[in-house]
Nucleic acid binder design. Structure first.
Length: 281
DNA sequence: CCTTAATCCTGGAAGC
DNA sequence: TGCTTCCAGGATTAAG
């Protein structure tokens, strides 16, 4: 499931391939996957992809400005959330490509290349906005700071507001944007913090350490190409390698690498949670 | 304020 | 082998 490192890898891949390309055709094969202006124009037809932004797990393809745009300096944009099983792939002009039943939106570029949004489980989606400002106002304003950029002070303030278990709070995109079930478990293991500890109890020094570890964890995961459990592939179709470095996620029933004791499994916010009951307090 | 459960959905895996 | 059942979970919503 794409969390920040996976989404960032998609962004990096698309930055190398579709940024600077002009969209000449958009095919919407499933309209119910698109919110907002669900038309080819809404999905950037006749625009050049100016840049790709990311906040947490969400991407935004930003179109260039055309002469008759009211809002000069800021073109329309499409926000994309990959959900659980979504992928955003680029296919070069000479490559083979066959859309299937789960391929919901297709873009064709001036160079003959194509991009496809595919999402079997359809937890993901697209949101068309007339401008980046509008995206940020209507959709991104409710998110916490990006997990790679949030300051310890801001995170501490967020965590301090709630008695929920730390795991639940960190999964909440309004607290910090980008973490999902995999990286929260890995992060708390690295910090030796129990997922069940009330978020409010984390001290400023602990949050400072957590933010440092979070950046390091996510940076390493990005560099490894993200984690592929089943579905995830980047924009070029490559799987990630960070799942090989997971310390707790997916290791139910196995022992802690640090203390050799059996790992604990519980549920927090309805999510399977694996942690070491001895190392994490 | 906080929880659990249900909801959306498909496919892989486990069970019989 | 083939069927059924369970399970995974991001985000949202309702109910307790």
């Amino acid at each position: 499931m794409p969390e920040l490192p996976e989404v960032e890898n998609v962004r990096l891949g698309l930055a190398d391939t579709v940024v600077g390309q002009r969209v000449v055709k958009v095919t919407i094969r499933r309209a119910d996957i698109v919110q907002g202006l669900c038309t080819p124009a809404g999905l950037l037809r006749d625009r050049t992809i100016a840049r790709i932004e990311r906040l947490g797990k969400q991407l935004a393809l930003v179109g260039d400005v055309s002469d008759n745009d009211a809002n000069a300096g800021d073109g329309p944009c499409v926000c994309i959330h990959l959900g659980m099983t979504g992928s955003l792939r680029y296919y070069p002009p000479d490559g083979a490509f066959k859309p299937d039943a789960h391929t919901h939106v297709l873009w064709r570029f001036g160079n003959g290349g194509r991009m496809a949004f595919r999402d079997p489980r359809r937890f993901g989606g697209l949101w068309a906005f007339p401008s980046v400002d509008e995206l940020k106002r209507a959709r991104w304003s409710g998110l916490g700071g990006d997990a790679l950029a949030i300051t310890p002070g801001r995170l501490h303030a967020q965590l301090n507001r709630t008695r929920r278990p730390t795991k639940s709070a960190l999964l909440d995109q309004a607290v910090v944007a980008g973490l999902g079930n995999i990286y929260v478990d890995e992060l708390l293991y690295g910090c030796r913090i129990s997922p069940l500890r009330p978020a409010r109890d984390l001290t400023m020094p602990e949050v400072r350490a957590l933010v440092g570890r979070m950046r390091r964890l996510l940076t390493r995961a990005i560099r490894a190409g993200g984690s592929t459990l089943r579905d995830y592939v980047d924009a070029g179709g490559q799987t990630g390698g960070y799942q090989l470095q997971h310390k707790v996620y997916g290791r139910t029933g196995q022992v802690c690498y640090r203390c050799d004791r059996a790992l604990c499994t519980t549920t927090a916010s309805g999510r399977t949670t694996v942690y070491c009951g001895s190392c994490q307090t």
